[in-house]
């Protein structure tokens, strides 16, 4: 059957011509979007530029946006996106500058990888044979090593969209791989660096990276785990960690959340200027009847507290 692709074109040597171009190609049930794009490039229009290589979802070259969402086009079948032959729109990956057509500049991506000290740093004497470690400690890391650095998560990260300094899901997932490696001797330094701004606390938990990752790496889950680890090793003085602690404290006490307490705690109670800066919003909210002075509670806060005690005590 026939399938129309609407492909974003951009040529830096002729920027005025930028826009969408439609191509109609013959496809079957098993045709992938990459197959369709290759047909375009090889049989219809050699001017179309894109990166692609392995065709088997392992090289990470072909992440691009399909109907607005980042996908590895080699493992996306045409009929999974357009079951009734709807036109498919292909854009380059987001959050990275476009070089030409579907090719984007990955330099910021690799620079961030470099920024997390992306290599094992063992301490102490090097054993003659392998480092001994249980399979349990190691094998779960394969889930992160599964990352093929395709950039799909970076493309659709909602924080990177507003702040290009954020380390981003891919580099942070890579950082987790070293933080959790029992052979690495720099866990605390690593967490310290990740605890700084642009690090783990800047993630909004929006789950875009979890949704679009073609390899189930779950970058956001790794970021959350590193937040917890950072607090565990003693990095408690960030507004992020205070936020989490305060949240837990108030739920433990009342069974429910208390937003006013949260606002005060997260800023740090000594952070007077920042608190004052919040005041206009806070006052306006109170005038409108928001932020009740008295916290609401579960009808059985003690039972909720017991769940806390039992699980935190494990």
């Amino acid at each position: 059957m026939e399938q129309t692709l609407r492909v974003k074109r951009y040529d830096p040597e002729n920027p005025g011509s930028a826009g969408y171009q439609e191509y109609t190609v013959e496809v079957t049930d098993t045709t992938t979007i990459l197959d369709a794009l290759l047909t375009v490039r090889e049989e219809m229009d050699g001017t179309l530029s894109m990166r692609c290589s392995c065709r088997a979802s392992i090289c990470g070259s072909c992440a691009m946006r399909v109907n607005g969402q980042a996908k590895l086009v080699c493992k996306t079948r045409v009929n999974s996106v357009a079951p009734d032959g709807e036109t498919i729109t292909i854009d380059p990956a987001g959050n990275m500058p476009v070089i030409k057509d579907l090719v984007v500049e990955f330099k910021p991506f690799w620079d961030k990888m470099r920024a997390i000290t992306p290599y094992l740093q063992p301490e102490g004497e090097v054993p003659e044979a392998e480092y001994l470690a249980s399979d349990d400690e190691m094998v779960h890391l394969v889930g992160v090593v599964n990352c093929i650095q395709c950039g799909a998560c970076v493309s659709d990260c909602t924080v990177l969209e507003v702040d290009s300094s954020f380390l981003g899901p891919a580099a942070l997932a890579k950082a987790y791989r070293f933080v959790k490696d029992p052979r690495d001797g720099h866990q605390k330094d690593r967490l310290g660096a990740l605890n700084e701004s642009s690090g783990v606390w800047d993630c909004t938990r929006c789950m875009q990276c979890v949704e679009v990752c073609p390899k189930d790496v779950n970058p956001m889950g790794r970021i959350m785990a590193m937040r917890d680890l950072a607090m565990e090793v003693g990095y408690n003085n960030t507004s992020g960690s205070r936020h989490t602690e305060s949240f837990a404290r108030t739920v433990k006490k009342n069974g429910r959340l208390d937003e006013t307490r949260l606002a005060v705690d997260s800023m740090g109670i000594f952070n007077i200027p920042a608190l004052l800066a919040e005041a206009p919003v806070g006052l306006r909210a109170i005038r409108k009847g928001k932020f009740p002075w008295k916290a609401h509670k579960s009808s059985e806060p003690n039972k909720v507290k017991r769940v806390f005690e039992k699980i935190e005590g494990e």
């Binding site: 938990r205 959350m224 785990a225 937040r227 917890d228 607090m231 936020h243 989490t244 602690e245 949240f247 837990a248 739920v251 069974g255 429910r256 959340l257 579960s298 009808s299 059985e300 039972k303 909720v304 769940v307 806390f308 699980i311 935190e312 494990e314």
Partner: peptide, 19 residues
């Protein structure tokens, strides 16, 4: 469900998912 607790909003989960 008057006795129900807060869901944790994902915040509690980052500290202790099981909780």
């Amino acid at each position: 469900i008057v006795s129900a607790a807060c869901t944790g909003a994902g915040v509690l989960q980052e500290r202790n998912q099981k909780l």
